[in-house]
């Protein structure tokens, strides 16, 4: 499991440019699915099983994309100015390294003497070792992601793009393990979640599911001076109640609670006042789709070092498998 998560998190694939991660995931899951395809927005859609009595067509969404930066200007001296792809925090950028999809590595910095508060993305620049615009290997429109290795800390794991490669891992592992289900399962590895759940919007329309379940990370609140609210690392998978894009469907919440209880897995109820996931997009398509989200608590979300708890992941896989192997009563 950790081997696979290492491969997933170390792959570079910002929103809109998901080919690398898509190819990796396709190779992992191809032997286990009935049908696999890629749609206009680049979503990877894998189908497994047929709908039987009491079953539903369930869309399980994990987003493949990660936050990143896009070159917006190459200065006369060869520095690369950038725009953000998704919610990049400039504070965590300074001093970080990035890698462009063409392999170019760069260092993010800024003119410190001009800055007396949190910088904006526009004030950052990337130094790729060029001496002028002419020898800069980056063009306007090129994209990059953070360059950091995956670290296994035993109880905890840390990597860039844990958001949402851990969701991809849950989907892949569950897909491999599920043998029998009354449900038609459609696993969608979605694109462009970080910039507004856009891949989920179109793929949910295409799949036309009866139930939607997103797999994603959520913000943990257990750093030293944090008010101890839900969720925290190591206290179990999280069942989303609300965020700004979704009021989770009560029946989906109930089914998740039941699945966890059946294996005596401790869960946390997640009430988030902001942010959103693919479930927010899925629940609005066509006639509306009862939807929910299974989340993994994560520290330092959208930084180059996102941290999660190993047992949360293991428990989430067990819980998701039970959830999908049984009928969900709407």
């Amino acid at each position: 499991m950790k081997e696979l998560l290492k491969k997933l998190t170390e792959t570079a694939a910002p929103s809109g440019h998901e080919a690398n991660i898509r190819n990796l995931i396709r190779k992992e899951i191809e032997p286990y699915v009935d049908e696999i395809s890629v749609d206009v927005m680049g979503n990877l859609i894998a189908r497994k099983g047929k709908k039987q009595k009491d079953g539903h067509r369930i869309l399980i969404a994990a987003h493949m994309d990660e936050i990143g930066l896009m070159a917006s200007h190459i200065s006369e001296k060869g520095f690369v100015y950038v725009a953000s792809i998704g919610g990049v925090n400039p504070l965590t950028c300074v001093g970080s390294r990035v890698v462009f999809l063409n392999g170019t590595v760069g260092v993010i910095s800024l003119e410190t003497e001009k800055i007396d508060k949190v910088p904006t993305i526009n004030q950052l620049f990337i130094d790729v070792g060029a001496t002028s615009a002419d020898d800069c290997p980056v063009n306007v429109g090129d994209v990059c992601v953070f360059d950091r290795p995956f670290i296994d800390m035993r109880k905890r794991m840390v990597a860039k793009a844990m958001d949402d490669r851990v969701g991809c891992l849950l989907a892949i592992e569950t897909l491999k393990q599920i043998k029998e289900s009354p449900n038609e399962l459609v696993f969608v590895f979605t694109t462009q979640e970080e910039i507004g759940a856009r891949g989920a919007t179109t793929s949910a329309y295409g799949v036309d599911p009866e139930i939607g379940i997103a797999l994603d990370v959520t913000l943990s609140a257990d750093t030293p001076h944090c008010t101890p609210v839900n969720p925290v690392l190591g206290e179990g998978p999280c069942i989303k109640v609300r965020d700004s894009s979704l009021i989770a469907h009560p029946a989906v919440i109930e089914a998740m609670k039941k699945a966890a209880a059946s294996r005596k897995i401790k869960v946390q109820m997640e009430v988030l006042r902001f942010a959103g996931t693919d479930a927010g997009a899925i629940h609005t398509v066509r006639s509306g789709v009862p939807s929910g989200c299974l989340s993994i608590a994560c520290r330092y979300v959208h930084s180059p070092s996102e941290m999660i708890d190993t047992s949360d992941v293991e428990n989430a896989i067990v819980m998701l498998k039970v959830l999908l192997e049984n009928p969900i009563a709407l």
Binding site: V40, R198, T202, Y205, G206
Partner: peptide, 9 residues
């Protein structure tokens, strides 16, 4: 336009 139905390039 690009998000209409199942997506338009």
């Amino acid at each position: 336009v690009h998000l209409s139905q199942d997506g338009i390039p």
